[in-house]
């Protein structure tokens, strides 16, 4: 029982270290994606051989997947709300929705990648292929990690004691990660898909 009532750690910063860790990690992720986005911009228009972005990008399709990811941010924030206000059913339901929407986004991405490969664009075709796949691939990888992260919370919440006393912290921190992945997509969508080629 003592373990279950784990004492709130007192930290010199006055904030929970676990949540601080997530923010520090997200700060470093800014640099990670910042570099990849810079690379994409630098290589933009430098491809010696086709296909070029305007030949393959499908904006309506990607708008749909963007919408899916945006909605997953909404369901995520509602899951955090549920966790914070003790509405466990809502928390679980919304976590499940977020996981499903995340999987939906990944489905779109897999379809898109397969379609592009079919059109003759691979990682090594040209500068566009290289920078596009690396940037969006790493983003997709983050979404994948997020799906596993949220699934683990969902499974945790099914246990007898649920997520325990730190429930809202766990869900809140996972939410931070999830929203971050969403804002990276907001930037990627604008820069890769909407900006004129």
């Amino acid at each position: 029982m003592a373990a279950a009532h784990e004492v709130q750690h007192h930290t010199s910063t006055g904030v929970d270290n676990r949540k601080l860790l997530m923010w520090v990690f997200l700060a470093s992720e800014c640099l990670f994606f910042g570099t990849l986005i810079s690379t994409y911009l630098i290589f933009k228009g430098e491809s010696l051989v086709p296909p070029r972005p305007e030949d393959v990008l499908d904006i309506p399709l990607t708008s749909a997947s963007t919408f899916v990811l945006l909605m997953s941010s909404l369901t995520m924030v509602l899951a955090v709300y549920g966790a914070q206000h003790g509405r466990i059913g809502m928390m679980k339901g919304m976590l499940l929705c977020t996981v499903l929407l995340g999987l939906g986004f990944l489905g779109f991405q897999v379809y898109e990648f397969m379609h592009f490969v079919h059109e003759g664009l691979s990682l090594s075709t040209n500068q566009f292929g290289a920078s596009f796949y690396v940037l969006t691939g790493f983003h997709g990888f983050h979404v994948g990690i997020g799906v596993l992260y949220l699934t683990s919370l969902l499974i945790g919440s099914m246990r007898r004691h649920g997520l325990g006393r730190d429930r809202d912290l766990w869900v809140d921190t996972a939410g931070l990660y999830w929203h971050f992945v969403d804002i990276v997509w907001i930037v990627i969508f604008t820069i890769i898909y909407l900006m004129p080629h």
């Binding site: 910063t13 904030v15 949540k19 923010w23 700060a27 800014c30 640099l31 810079s38």
Partner: peptide
């Protein structure tokens, strides 16, 4: 503290870009 932490990473990334 969270705000400063994130702002730090973000600004650094912007400078890098």
């Amino acid at each position: 503290l969270f705000r400063r932490m994130f702002a730090f990473g973000f600004v650094l990334a912007a400078i890098l870009l």
